[in-house]
């Protein structure tokens, strides 16, 4: 079995969730690498969209910015933000794929401030396009490292909507129906959401990881799905493409 690090595992596992022929709007960082890995392996017809206007590129390398020229390299269209966001808003786009700051049990995300809003300990960038993508796309995928500082009972600031306070809350708030978080991919596990309560539950544990370990690294009560499976580890092929083509400089995976 091939050796791999936590970030490589996370990217490989997440990439398998993007099926060939799907549409995905990707955020900055990890999601860029993941979408590119999917495109270079099992999903050559993945339709990747970037919020600055890049549509269906054949990514030559991982974009550093979701608005750089690689986001429309050999693309099918170079357009603008409204065009991309409106495709999401009118229901065209299957997946929003976001990185996370803080996340709670309902998949609500914080990328705005740590601490009190008026006197923040840390000011982060804010929503960017994340709130829009998480509001509009049918399924939201989130990838983030798993620790109790990120997985919190209550986010300091609710930047982008998960299931808000639970079942029915999105619709009641005014968001398009039948949308919301779908999977959370971390370095420990893959989580989904309980059908009834819309709370996060473990569905796959990565090799060698126990449920207790996930709970210890989570600041809220983590649920277990009816069946918890073990994640298939990254294959030699996935790792080769990731290391040689997607991130050869090791920006994300930390290898050169």
């Amino acid at each position: 079995m091939a050796a791999y690090n936590a970030m490589e595992l996370m990217i490989c596992v997440a990439s398998r969730l993007l099926e060939d022929g799907a549409t995905v709007a990707v955020g900055t960082g990890g999601p860029c690498a993941t979408a590119m890995l999917a495109q270079k392996t099992h999903a050559p017809n993945l339709y990747i969209m970037f919020e600055a206007g890049g549509m269906a590129p054949q990514l030559p390398s991982m974009p550093i910015s979701v608005g750089d020229s690689r986001t429309f390299y050999r693309g099918l269209m170079a357009t603008g933000m409204c065009d991309v966001m409106e495709a999401c808003q009118r229901g065209v786009v299957d997946y929003a794929f976001l990185g996370g700051g803080q996340i709670d049990a309902y998949g609500n995300l914080n990328s705005t401030v740590i601490g009190d809003y008026d006197h923040p300990k840390v000011r982060f960038p804010g929503s960017g396009g994340a709130n829009d993508f998480a509001s509009f796309c049918w399924h939201t995928l989130i990838m983030t490292q798993h620790d109790a500082r990120r997985f919190v009972e209550r986010v300091d600031f609710l930047t982008s909507p998960g299931y808000l306070t639970g079942a029915g809350a999105r619709e009641e708030a005014g968001l398009p129906p039948n949308t919301g978080p779908y999977r959370v991919i971390t370095d420990l596990a893959v989580m989904g959401f309980d059908e009834k309560t819309k709370r996060m539950q473990v569905e796959y544990l990565h090799p060698g990881v126990s449920f207790e370990q996930v709970q210890q690294n989570t600041g809220f009560e983590m649920l277990q799905g009816d069946e918890v499976h073990e994640t298939q580890p990254p294959s030699e092929g996935e790792l080769r493409v990731l290391r040689e083509q997607v991130d050869p400089h090791g920006y994300l995976i930390g290898r050169a």
């Binding site: 609500n108 509001s135 600031f157 609710l158 809350a169 999105r170 005014g174 968001l175």
Partner: peptide, 10 residues
């Protein structure tokens, strides 16, 4: 009119 921002601190 847009359909985002609902339900959030944003």
């Amino acid at each position: 009119p847009v359909r985002s921002m609902f339900g959030t601190d944003t």
